[in-house]
Design a protein around this nucleic acid. Sequence first.
DNA 1: TTTTCAGGTGTATTTCTTACACTTATAAGC
DNA 2: GCTTATAAGTGTAAGAAATACACCTGAAAA
Lengths: 247, 247
Amino acid sequence: MYGYADKAFARQPQDVVPEYHGEEPSFHHTVDCVILGFHRTELHVLLHRFPYKPYKGHWALLGGFVTPDASLDETALQTVQRLTGLENIYMEQVYTFGEVRRVPTERVITTCYYALIRVEPTLDQLSPHYQATWHPLSQIPNLDLVYDHPLMLRKAIEQLRLRIRLQPIGFELLPEKFTMTELRQLYESILDRPLDKRNFNKKVLAMNLLQKLEEKQKDTSKRGAFYYQFDAERYRQYLEKGFLFEL
Amino acid sequence: MYGYADKAFARQPQDVVPEYHGEEPSFHHTVDCVILGFHRTELHVLLHRFPYKPYKGHWALLGGFVTPDASLDETALQTVQRLTGLENIYMEQVYTFGEVRRVPTERVITTCYYALIRVEPTLDQLSPHYQATWHPLSQIPNLDLVYDHPLMLRKAIEQLRLRIRLQPIGFELLPEKFTMTELRQLYESILDRPLDKRNFNKKVLAMNLLQKLEEKQKDTSKRGAFYYQFDAERYRQYLEKGFLFEL
DNA sequence: TTTTCAGGTGTATTTCTTACACTTATAAGC
DNA sequence: GCTTATAAGTGTAAGAAATACACCTGAAAA
């Protein structure tokens, strides 16, 4: 019998049960982070070398233990910050894994988050503690991930795929200024299918959330492509009017 | 410092760290269930009277403690079964709530699930232990739910709204045989907007997943409406061919 | 026999989605 | 300085999907 209500009824007609948790079992709880970044034309995930036997040297998502004074969200944020040094990280909870033997050595319940960050600033500032490196998603099947981390990664990508079409979160993965080609390639990488250049631009620009800048990107083509930036303030205004982002 | 990787590096060059969880804090973990059913023309949620001070008598989702030998999924299933006596319940994890003070008396981490069940069989077989009753969703704002249960309920409905358009889970809420009117009202209730009768039927029937029966429902109208049933086997076949459910 | 009531049915319009190919600006190479 | 190479930029037509809409039917009840 597991229900806390049961206990109350077993104790009837006693009325006051201020401390009903005391005798219940408790569990270690960790947070694992699928840290995602967009580099060149592909989505990448930041993995580190797992430092414990028997999986020492295998690849793993970076995680951290929940402590009494930190919420799950806070734990996740701190985990990513410790590794990347970044502030203002966009994170979202994905799923909680609670199978009894998912970690062979001990019962641990783990909540998975994904983080969307800009790769560029991390390239020279990742904490050397973790031996963390970026891996293109396409290479994951060849890597040996610990525990149920392959499943976590899959769930995270699945959720990102659904979300990115309904919320303007893709911009978290791009620098402030980006070209339409970069934006399109980001979506192609996440949705894992090619998108028509003209149709994509039409749809995105019709939402009127991008500001076209005078400046051009000059390194990827001879002609150069105009930079755009996402207007978060205008998005907030549209939201209030009931406008829905959709791609 | 919270990361388990930190510890390993602090211990370098020591190699074998078989028990790295021992000193970490642990937490009570519960599962709360948003038990949903469709009755008349509206979605209902099954709530019970909370038996503990200081919220005794307020309404609450039914929950249960996670135990060492039960996964989260199992805990959720058992919780609903204990109350309803039903087998084969469709459940889905929604979100895990881990704020430090979300339960004022003690730190508890809670994973929320929703369950989709048929109301009819429960009407005379709910375990009397729990004083549980069905409440139409429209009445929830008037009820006093404990803790963050209002938030849980909102998240669950939100997730159901997204899922029901992409997966044939609505049928879990209807009896084996149902009329097109019932199916439409179910969707109207969940999506919270009216749907055109002809367009809805056209779209649903075009998917070719419903079997029209000879039998008619005779109690709601003089003419009577044909019963249909969902063909799960055919859905499985279509799935393999890459077919996507969409409403 | 009439009334009442939900069940059942088709088409035209609009909107959205998709497919598709050539010109342009500029740097690099000769 | 002329040519070449490269990605950027641009519009339209066809097809598909979504929407709006109103009247007749079958059967029980009066």
